[in-house]
Structure formats: structure tokens, C-alpha cells
């Protein structure tokens, strides 16, 4: 059963289809939001907000389009609202520690320390990180990335190119994280 078929049943009022789609996607949405925010509890709340927003928006979903990028687009909007609600500050405190690398789960923390590249990616501009995650974390093709971000394919390619370039530059220079990057 494809995601799009389930989404069409969801549109017709099937609770079972909705529950099945939640089961298929909540882990992926949670990972995206956790990598973006770095907070497990925030990611849980934002995942729930994403599905509630999708529940309200499902009448507008067009089954001819791929369901995954549509749902990630909603997650991205939910994330943007979350950043807007955050108290603005220019610089994070010097003792800021990435919650993922100091997680209570020791093996997972070691695994995260191994992906220092993604820690650097989280310090890029939100849209650059989102594009990188959707392309390489989720494995979306360029069209999927473009649909999730609400941009054209060429724009998505340029965005990914600049994100990789900036990531390479930061990884080389070891530039620190600033909250201003996200605002």
C-alpha cells in the first residue's frame, strides 16, 4: 500500500489510514526535527504538532503528489514557527553543549560524535540544513527536496551547492555556532 493511497483514504475519513501513516512517518519526522532542534522533548512536541497540522491540512493534499515531501513541508513550517517562538539571542552561551552529543544514551552519543559533519551542518542556516537533511538524511531526490521546501528544482540545487560549500568551509575553519544563523 503506497503512502499516497493511504493519504487518499485519510482524506476520506479513515482513522486507520491516518494511524498507519503516523506509524510510517513519525520516526522520520522525529529524526528530522531532533537533528534540527537538538532537543529530544522539542522534537517530540514538534512531531505531534506536525501531524496535527497535517490532520487539519489533509483536505488540501493532492494525491497525485508524493506524500513524503508534503508532510516534511508541514514539518518544516512547524519548525519555522518553533524558531519564531524562541527567545531571540545573538550568541549561545559558551558552555552550550549539543544535546545530541550529551544524550543519556551512551552508545548513541558515541555514534553522534562520529557524525561531526552533521553537527556542523546543524549550525548552517535553517534552510540549508533542511535541504541537506532532506537530500542526504532522508534520501529525497531533488524534486522531493524542492517540493518539501516549496522552491524550484534549480533553486534546490543551488541551495544544496551553497550548503555543501559553506559546510566545507566551516568544517575546515571550525567556525562556532551562533544562534543568529537560525534567525
Amino acid at each position: 500500500m503506497t503512502d499516497e493511497t493511504l493519504a487518499r483514504w485519510w482524506q476520506e475519513g479513515s482513522d486507520a489510514a491516518f494511524a498507519e501513516l503516523v506509524g510510517r512517518f513519525y520516526g522520520r519526522i522525529f529524526n528530522f526535527l531532533w537533528h534540527a532542534t537538538g532537543h529530544r522533548e522539542d522534537a517530540e512536541d514538534l512531531t505531534q504538532e506536525t501531524f496535527l497540522a497535517a490532520h487539519r491540512s489533509i483536505p488540501r493534499y493532492q494525491p497525485a503528489r508524493t506524500f513524503g515531501p508534503w508532510l516534511f513541508g508541514i514539518a518544516r513550517h512547524t519548525l519555522a514557527d518553533h524558531w519564531r517562538r524562541q527567545r531571540p539571542c545573538d550568541e549561545l552561551p559558551p558552555d552550550f553543549a549539543d544535546p545530541i552529543s550529551t544524550s543519556e544514551n551512551a552508545p548513541a552519543a558515541r555514534e553522534e560524535r562520529g557524525s561531526a559533519l552533521w553537527q556542523q551542518a546543524r549550525r548552517l542556516k535553517p534552510r540549508q540544513f533542511e535541504a541537506l537533511w532532506l537530500r542526504y538524511g532522508e534520501g529525497f531526490d531533488i524534486a522531493g527536496v524542492a517540493r518539501a521546501l516549496g522552491i524550484t528544482r534549480i533553486h534546490a540545487k543551488v541551495l544544496l551547492f551553497r550548503a555543501r560549500k559553506e559546510l566545507a568551509r566551516r568544517a575546515g575553519s571550525g567556525k562556532g555556532r551562533t544562534k543568529g544563523d537560525r534567525l
Binding site: 520516526g27 522520520r28 548513541a108 555514534e111 557524525s115 552533521w118 551542518a121
Partner: peptide
């Protein structure tokens, strides 16, 4: 590297 090290929790 990005595709290989994207961790899923």
C-alpha cells in the same frame, strides 16, 4: 559522507 553519517535515532 553526509549520506553515510546521517544517523537515525
Amino acid at each position: 559522507r553526509l549520506a553515510a553519517t546521517a544517523s537515525h535515532r
